[in-house]
Simulated assay, not measured.
Amino acid sequence: MKNLISILTIFILLITACKAQQPIAKISEGKIKVSGETFNVKKDNNKLTVIRNVTNKLSDVEQYAPHLPQEARVNYHMTVDKKLLTKICADAIPLSTLRKLPIGANGFLLLISKVNPLGAILEIKFVLESNSLLTLNELQEIEEKLKSAQFKIKFDKEIQHYIKDANYFPIDLYVSYADMLKAKEGN
């Protein structure tokens, strides 16, 4: 009986690991485990796929910034290190995959992020085309590195006083596949 349970457990783990390595185009909706994290995959009208870590909770929490003037736009008072962002994404994706990804108007990865007042990314929701060649393993690696201390968004000094007591800011980050390819090839 113990052998049967062990075999079933190994079989389930192998199936999960295989799904995480498949391109998004071949994955159906649902929850998939990757390196100890669980991701929710949702296909929208067969054009877009939205992927989020199930530990993300801020989507259900109203954003507040008690000292921020109503007309202020945080996006105008921040700096994103696009070169580092692009490098982190490119490092997670094999060169052979990057060469096959679309270049042009639809050739980008959208990261819908929740960022704290210190510029650290708290949560990421990935949005990409449903026929994407990227894998959940690659997206999990991108999420892990962007949430690390290695990457931060810098807010301008003139707005820091107004944002200090905020819980988070929604910030959309776009990374083009063409820029990732250039970074990977060293151009």
Rank of each mutant, 00 (worst) to 15 (best):
I103G: 04
D81F: 09
K87I: 01
E141N: 15
P94K: 12
L134G: 00
Q140Y: 15
I153C: 07
F155E: 00
K145L: 09
T49L: 03
L95V: 08
V54D: 10
L133S: 02
H77Y: 08
D44V: 14
V127F: 03
K145C: 10
Q160L: 11
L122D: 04
L134R: 00
I142S: 02
L139S: 07
D156E: 14
G107P: 05
S113Y: 01
S148C: 05
L146F: 08
I159C: 06
Q140S: 14
T49R: 09
I88H: 07
I163R: 01
A90G: 07
N45Q: 11
I103M: 07
E141D: 11
L136G: 12
Y64D: 05
L110C: 10
N56V: 08
L146M: 05
I112M: 13
V61N: 00
E138Y: 07
S59W: 15
N53E: 15
D44C: 11
Y64R: 06
Q160I: 10
K87S: 04
Q63Y: 00
F108H: 13
E129M: 10
V74H: 07
L111I: 05
N46A: 13
Q150L: 15
E138P: 08
H161Q: 12
G119R: 03
L146D: 02
L146C: 02
L58G: 07
A92K: 01
I163A: 00
S96P: 04
E158M: 13
F151D: 03
L122W: 10
Y76C: 05
L146R: 04
N53I: 15
P69G: 03
